[in-house]
Design a protein around this nucleic acid. Structure first.
Lengths: 396, 396
DNA sequence: CCCACTTTCTTCGATATCGAAGTAGCTCAG
DNA sequence: CTGAGCTACTTCGATATCGAAGAAAGTGGG
């Protein structure tokens, strides 16, 4: 007759990973600002934390600046990441455009830039240009001397997590099986992270806006339809294809063939490209998905109607996935997410058709991290993989 | 110009959890049989392993028996779980039947029994009878004096992982919101594990047949349609509803209303009950799903046809989920999984309609753990939560 | 201002883990 | 059967972590 019912080993979130990198993560993400907080969150003894923090300060990763707010006793000595601790270089590539950032170790952008580049010219040329521009961006903001700790690249296609290669991308001619991770790593001279853009967005949205939730679905509605999944607080990759929702068959009157070879894929009916095509049939030409949002905001009836139709189809696909995955929140982002009728329709379909059990605690929201979610996500993922260089830096 | 490309911190599977319980797990699951293997798999120093093993032997959890096979040098001293280390009591409840087992700490059944019991008489009566029968079963096999380390209960309905309560079960009148975990824990005097039956089956299938794979979908085809999901080597519960695939809308000619209130749910068209109903329309009455398997095996054309239709619908639902989740394997179990045309149809639809990227490494197989997969699964999950009593046992 | 109480951080002895070196026991080739 | 080479395990000194106690610094009430 021992204790009864204590079946869940509650477990502090960060207790699993240890080593100095855990402390860096806690400070970088702002979860901890003092030695005491580090001790509480890391599970280490206060004395051990003090020792390690001293080393981290000695290695130039932390700085001590001023004192924090008292919580009823002695004020804590505030810890921060040193400016010289390092930066990450991040590029989020689209079909005709790249968003560049120099970010601190928390993923927060210190400098942002946009670069026009056609991804179809091939990987070598594109990536070389991107890395050069990232370097230049860092120099232009006085960060030329700060060590680069990692490079992150977001791509609009599937990435094999085992090899860091792009696999069967539909819109990236010349990139198939190209070893992006190795190429970027070699040319930048630091470890590289290569990831699908929707996955980066999911990671960023999770860290930035929903850190307390463990299971998240993030939908990226733009020219195409992407999706990233956070399971148990970590990005779910599967074998590289995880998160694909665009090639499910949907029920529609007219049949449209998708580029993938099957009829009536969600993407062929409800993506930004499909909506644009539908509007074109009404004599309304739109060049970019964000124009659709403007048309909807202006009350153009054909646009609102088209977007509602797309929303219904997307919602119907999501019902099955929400029942199956049972996430804590469903986040809708991407350039089309500004169209309110679209989001409202999706929300309505899900609440109507899903199991009550799946929706009773389900939050359905639009992106809160906004346009730079992917940058944040890349920073977060790079930080998660920083154990190596942190240990290395301390050892010298 | 540091090292390049080492982006994935490969990481030994068991490195995350430590403490004496990790060693017990490795020995219980058969992954390690000697101190040397424990050291390799746990990541601990060989000397530390020796010390801890000595303690575990002293506490009566391990025994040393004989020597293992040489790997080219000194033969290892074989470690085994002591018989007196303990047992788990497990019950897998169906609507009219319970499968009972006394299992060792690895989940391997030491004694099995079947119990006829109508779940609709309510939770107190059912659970009291089940616990009594489990105790009797242990005594009958000379295990009356071995300490019971945990009780596992599988239920044919959704279980809230936070509270251990059944929530909105469709086929368990009187069980809604009943605190099964607390009740069983109190009446058995040990920590209780309460879990959905398909989830237990998934855990068992994973541990028993696919331990090297991290992402698994396990479909249970019986009277109803259940599904358990293994993500990153662990059971995914979501908020308790995860794995539901039976209430997705499917495309069919005739419309059937489902008990959930929506039309054309998968369950209403493709479950064992639905197939039985379809056969009944042809004048063929079947009392249990396994009879359908017999009819199919006997080549009864109506049965084969009905099963094929069900398989097509199930397969179509699964395509979307396979694209989304991108598992390493899809395992089909449950009493209907013996019907080969059913499995063949599902397999065919998935390979035809899914993304090549999602199916290129996808294994589609029928259950290998068989009828007692749930027992194994419960044992595994109970072992995962055994840190508390193991620490406690060592401390005395 | 004094004093009880809180929180933060450090000091220091006890303990646990590590890892290198040593011992035990086995295989295999000649 | 002998010795080189391998694996399994143990011994033992070095080191890292812990935790209790103490020092530092602040809050708030009388």
């Amino acid at each position: 007759m021992d204790e009864v019912g204590l079946c869940y080993s509650s477990g502090v979130r960060n207790s699993r990973d240890d080593g100095p990198a855990a402390l860096v993560r806690l400070v970088a993400t702002g979860q901890a600002e003092s030695r005491a907080e580090l001790a509480r969150l890391s599970g280490l003894a206060a004395s051990s934390v003090s020792l390690r923090v001293e080393q981290l300060i000695g290695a130039g990763l932390f700085t001590e600046e001023g004192a924090g707010a008292s919580r009823g006793g002695r004020r804590p000595r505030r810890l921060r990441l040193a400016r010289e601790a390092g930066v990450f270089l991040v590029a989020d590539l689209g079909a005709h455009h790249a968003r560049l950032a120099v970010a601190d170790l928390a993923g927060t952008p210190l400098a942002l830039d946009d670069l026009a580049c056609d991804i179809s010219v091939g990987p070598e040329e594109t990536l070389t240009a991107v890395i050069g521009s990232l370097r230049a961006l860092a120099r232009a903001h006085g960060l030329g001397e700060v060590p680069v700790r990692g490079v992150g690249v977001g791509l609009p296609g599937p990435v094999d997590p085992a090899t860091g290669q792009v696999v069967s991308p539909s819109r990236m001619p010349g990139w198939n099986d190209f070893p992006v991770r190795d190429f970027v790593g070699a040319h930048a001279g630091v470890p590289a992270l290569v990831e699908n853009d929707a996955n980066l967005m999911a990671a960023g949205e999770h860290r930035h806006s929903w850190p307390a939730l463990d299971n998240l679905m993030v939908i990226k509605l733009g020219t195409g339809i992407g999706c990233g999944v956070i399971v148990d607080g970590r990005l779910h990759r599967g074998r590289g294809a995880a998160g694909d929702i665009s090639h499910v068959r949907v029920l529609t009157e007219a049949t449209v063939d998708c580029a993938c070879g099957h009829p009536d894929c969600l993407e062929a009916h409800a993506s930004g490209a499909a909506v644009a095509a539908a509007l074109s049939g009404h004599g309304i030409e739109v060049e970019r998905p964000s124009r659709i949002v403007d048309l909807v905001a202006d009350g153009v009836p054909q646009a609102t109607s088209a977007v509602r139709t797309a929303g219904r189809l997307i919602g119907e696909v999501l019902t099955g996935l929400v029942n199956f995955f049972n996430p804590d929140a469903l986040v809708i982002g991407g350039s089309l997410s500004g169209a309110e009728p679209l989001v409202a329709t999706i929300r309505g379909v899900i609440y109507e058709r899903c199991l009550p059990l799946a929706t009773r605690n389900l939050e359905i929201a639009t992106s809160r991290a906004g346009r730079d979610a992917s940058i944040l996500g890349a920073g977060h993922l790079l930080l998660e993989r920083s154990d190596t260089w942190i240990d290395h830096t301390l050892a010298r």
